[in-house]
Design a protein around this nucleic acid. Structure first.
Length: 974
DNA sequence: TAGAAAACGTA
DNA sequence: GTACGTTTTCTAG
């Protein structure tokens, strides 16, 4: 380096934090990886490299380096163990970006410097001195006051966000002392963020005044007795040593033994392709374009870089759906005392969580804006906050927001009542608002700023509900985690459900206040807006407290157990997708249902009369107990079997068998049951679910209630709308598209058999699917040696039953039942099947062995289903678990595939400027409402996304096939 | 009045 | 033989 040269030193670590908090909107990559700070960093570097001359710095760098903190422990901790002890851990979304920023630096061909035991500031100090000694100049890219002591005539600082150079004058203006006195100023004033003690009662203003008067710290301390103010004098005398220690702490080590010489920092030309590849991988499209242009790189010819980063980032990085465990297990994303692996962190957190105490009296009821603002500021500072809404209904589409709770630290939680009511209901059913609640609009505007800030992670338990409630107040939560889904990804199958009470019991050893204890139960249960504020506070604040604690326990386990990508790729992104589907609802024609109800009622009444006639007496047909007595007692029909409670079985199977023998009564019972089932469950119940505001039916999807990864639907269940019988299908005609639209149904053909063929690697099956053959006919042909051409329907039917049986973990007993054949015959079929497809047996054996060894099985995307009872000594229990374990990877992989499709499909439609709306999912089928003119184009997009949904995480060795149709109602579209 | 059992709708 | 949710009846409290 020589005179006239100019060194730029970027304080990388400080930049990350500042960018993370100051740069909304923080962006995420398409896979959910947070990259906002990285984006800001890259833009900043590019700007400095391209046109630093146009900034307030006014010169072009000849040398350049980016400096990072190596770890949180430095030589200062030996001087003062509490140095920076009050630093909280970085926000979860920031952690993965540390590694990426270093990668970015390398992609820019810039030296990336860090040294164990030293802070970035010390390294910067050393290089500044070296640059000055060499006759050059230096600019520190930072606005941190800790670095201001380095400012000289040849060293200045530059605040990129304000485009402002900080020199001698600016320091003087800001702190009232020149840069050379900044050390003494900091030593006196201390610094709460770094835990520098300083002298009590002296802040920057007083410090500046004292230094102005006495010259420097040593002189001041010597002559402290001259100071007039009593308290100040005493403190300066008493805490003189503390001030000297503080000075040591804040003094940057310009003699830090850096091992990269100054000359090695000379700026090199950009490597266009390398940089473009990195930016492309980060999906920074506009910067990628600018860089490509400036470096003459052809974007299309560059493949996105395989961005290798430290595990924290890798765990959330590019496509890692399958087999992520290894990378994720090596380095902790978050370092806590003495904890340096994810597993150790998870264990430490679990232990700590159990010992934490709960104190409901510590919870705060917030009733004024100032306090609310303080809590929101605290949440902001923490970067992570648990959030929970309280409403007057379990139906998110109808619920009114009654209040909400927040918790940003263990044991600290607050409830904010907004719409609690009191007094007698008047004729309108409205009591008066309880006094002293913050106005709804004011509270919501504060809340909006918090929830929509992408740099703040909002943690919820079943957050889809809160998403719905807030969406109705025009608030969309930007960055969120869901403890229920984290638990589901980790422990699917271990616990049947992942409700907060069970999780609190299990992980915190704490029994939460029960809802019924605050609201009562049964008919006299209060809605939450009628609960007294103190009880509401204890209940609601505790929920937030628990949620945050659960998050701290469960989140690290995702990394430790290699399940980050399951959660990040299959669970979390689906929350908002499902929330939108639920909010859209589907149009149901009330008149069609009402007409059907009347028809079913009439027919059922006719059959009922016939039944009573045939039975010779009147009885309750709906009572299996009474019916059993009639059939097998009074009439002594043959073939009676008993249920496990000793009752006569009157199942459809039993009745069908009797009917086949020519008995009239059982036939009629079956018909009656079908009609009353259709009426009570569907035609009578569905109109009650039509939302009065929207005029549509809004189901609720559960992401966490199946062991395999499937969704479930309830209130109403729209995943079991009849289709098998002609009568039942008529119910589907009531599900209609709105005016000017069509319903499009797209369903995977034989997805589970295709998944099986892929996972078990069965050549014949894969070939058959590749050739587009009739898979059941092909199976029959292989097994029975019957040519596919002219195959009897019965032969194909049997093969089809066997194929399904395989997916369900086949047993001779079950197959015999299904086909109505002897168990020995069924056993022969199975034997023949395994002879023709030995790979299937190998696969089943291997799956069972895996389940026994690990206690769980996995889908192709790494989702786990646990079977803790698979080693049961009870053969029934054990066999059941084995069959379930065989089924789960197949059903679960298919479920994962459609999840991936759902996550991608909205963007794909938007890209093609299509207005189609996804309304329903029925396991292997998706239903859309599509403008009439866009049906064909929509089907093209939907089919493509669904068929490619496994890619690129898993390249299926069997093609996926999607059939799609459009019609005015669901019956015709399917 | 809460919960289990039986039955039955779907993939 | 797998995976669900809803309805009605019946039972235990």
């Amino acid at each position: 380096m020589k005179k006239g040269d100019h060194l730029f030193l970027v304080d990388g670590s400080a930049y990350i934090f500042r960018a993370f908090h100051a740069l909304p909107p923080l962006t995420r990559k398409s896979d959910g990886l947070p990259v906002g700070a990285v984006s800001g960093f890259c833009n900043m570097l590019w700007k400095l490299l391209q046109d630093a001359r146009d900034t307030d710095v006014g010169v072009t760098p000849t040398h350049f380096a980016v400096i990072f903190d190596y770890s949180s422990k430095t030589f200062r901790n030996e001087l003062y163990p509490d140095y920076k002890a009050n630093r909280s851990e970085p926000p979860e979304d920031l952690v993965p970006q540390f590694g990426l920023i270093r990668e970015a630096t390398k992609a820019f061909n810039l030296p990336c410097i860090e040294m164990e035991g030293y802070e970035a500031d010390d390294i910067i100090a050393a290089y500044c001195r070296m640059a000055e000694e060499a006759g050059g100049e230096a600019t520190i890219i930072s606005s941190d006051k800790d670095l201001m002591q380095l400012v000289t005539d040849h060293v200045s600082m530059y605040d990129t966000m304000k485009d402002r150079q900080i020199g001698r004058e600016e320091v003087l203006e800001k702190f009232g002392v020149g840069p050379e006195k900044m050390i003494d100023l900091q030593a006196l004033a201390g610094d709460s963020t770094d835990n520098i003690p300083g002298v009590p009662g002296i802040g920057p203003k007083t410090a500046a005044q004292l230094l102005d008067e006495y010259g420097d710290l040593d002189t001041l301390l010597e002559r402290a007795s001259e100071i007039k103010q009593n308290k100040r004098r005493e403190n300066l005398i008493e805490f003189a040593d503390q001030a000297r220690l503080s000075r040591q702490l804040v003094t940057l080590k310009a003699d830090t033994p850096v091992d990269i010489p100054l000359d090695a920092l000379a700026l090199e030309a950009q490597d266009g392709p390398k940089l473009v590849a990195f930016l492309k991988a980060m999906e920074f499209s506009s910067l990628t374009r600018r860089v490509a242009e400036a470096t003459g790189t052809e974007i299309g010819e560059i493949d996105p870089a395989q961005v290798a980063v430290e595990a924290g980032a890798q765990a959330r990085g590019p496509d890692l759906d399958a087999g992520t465990a290894d990378g994720a297990n090596t380095v902790a994303g978050v370092i806590e005392d003495g904890v340096d692996t994810p597993r150790a962190l998870a264990e430490a957190r679990a232990t700590a969580a159990r010992s934490g105490a709960f104190d409901a009296d510590a919870y705060v009821c917030i009733r004024d804006l100032r306090t609310l603002d303080e809590w929101i500021d605290n949440a902001r500072a923490a970067g992570v906050v648990a959030f929970d809404t309280e409403t007057d209904s379990l139906d998110a589409m109808q619920a009114t927001l009654v209040g909400f709770s927040l918790s940003h630290a263990e044991g600290e939680a607050a409830y904010v009542p907004l719409a609690h009511r009191q007094g007698e209901d008047d004729l309108l059913g409205e009591g008066g608002l309880v006094d002293g609640q913050i106005g709804l609009d004011e509270a919501l505007s504060r809340l909006k700023a918090l929830l929509e800030d992408p740099s703040i992670l909002i943690v919820g338990q079943n957050i889809k509900y809160d998403l719905q409630v807030m969406a109705r107040h025009d608030i969309s939560i930007a960055a969120f985690d869901d403890t229920m889904l984290i638990s589901y990804a980790l422990d699917g199958g271990n616990n049947s459900h992942h409700g907060m009470d069970a999780l609190a019991e299990r992980w915190l050893g704490h029994t939460p206040i029960a809802y019924k204890d605050v609201a009562g139960t049964g008919k006299k249960a209060l809605t939450f807006d009628r609960v007294a504020l103190d009880a509401a506070t204890r209940y609601a604040a505790e929920d937030a407290d628990i949620t945050l604690r659960l998050w701290r326990v469960l989140k690290p386990r995702l990394v430790a157990e290699g399940l980050v990508s399951v959660y990040e790729r299959l669970e979390r992104p689906l929350i908002a997708v499902l929330a939108r589907m639920e909010r859209r609802g589907i149009s149901v024609d009330r008149q069609i249902l009402s007409r059907l109800s009347g028809e079913f009622a009439q027919k059922a009444a006719g059959i009922e009369a016939e039944i009573h006639e045939l039975a010779g007496e009147s009885f309750n047909i709906g009572s299996p107990k009474q019916l059993g007595e009639i059939l097998f007692g009074k009439m002594s029909l043959p073939g009676g079997s008993k249920t496990k409670t000793g009752q006569w079985s009157t199942s459809a199977q039993v009745l069908e068998d009797l009917a086949a023998e020519g008995h009239e009564l059982p036939r009629r019972i079956v018909d009656w049951r079908q009609l009353t089932k259709l009426k009570s469950t569907y035609t009578d119940a569905l109109p009650g679910f039509i939302n009065p505001q929207t005029g549509r039916v809004h189901t609720s999807y559960s992401l966490a209630s199946t062991s395999t990864g499937r969704l479930s639907s309830s209130d109403p269940n729209l995943q079991n709308i009849p289709i098998r019988t002609a009568e039942g299908r008529r119910i589907r005609t009531a599900f209609v598209a709105q005016k000017g639209h069509r319903l499009v149904s797209a369903d995977y053909s034989q997805i589970e058999l295709r998944v099986l063929a892929h996972m078990a690697d069965i050549g014949q099956l894969k070939q058959a699917f590749a050739d587009g053959m009739d898979i059941h006919a092909m199976t029959a042909s292989e097994m029975f040696g019957v040519p596919v051409e002219g195959m009897p329907a019965e032969v194909r039917r049997r093969a089809k039953a066997i194929n399904f049986g395989i997916i369900y973990g086949i047993s001779a007993f079950g197959l015999a039942n299904q086909l109505g054949i002897a168990r020995s015959e069924a056993g022969d079929y199975i034997k023949t099947y395994f002879e023709r497809f030995p790979g299937i047996r190998d696969y089943m054996d291997a799956t069972k062995a895996f389940a026994r060894e690990h206690g769980y099985v996995e889908t192709v995307f790494g989702r786990r289903a646990h079977y803790p009872d698979i080693k049961s000594s009870n053969p029934q229990v054990r066999s059941f678990n084995e069959r379930a374990a065989i089924n789960a990877p197949i059903q679960g992989s298919a479920a994962d595939i459609i999840r991936r499709a759902m996550i991608r499909i909205e963007d794909a439609l938007a890209t093609e400027k299509l207005a189609a709306q996804m309304l329903l999912q029925v396991h292997d089928e998706l239903i859309f409402e599509v403008p009439e003119g866009e049906v064909e184009a929509t089907i093209d997009v939907v089919r493509d996304v669904m068929e490619q949904a496994a890619m690129p995480a898993v390249a299926m060795s069997v093609p996926l096939q999607v059939d799609a149709n459009a019609a005015h109602n669901w019956d015709e579209a399917h």
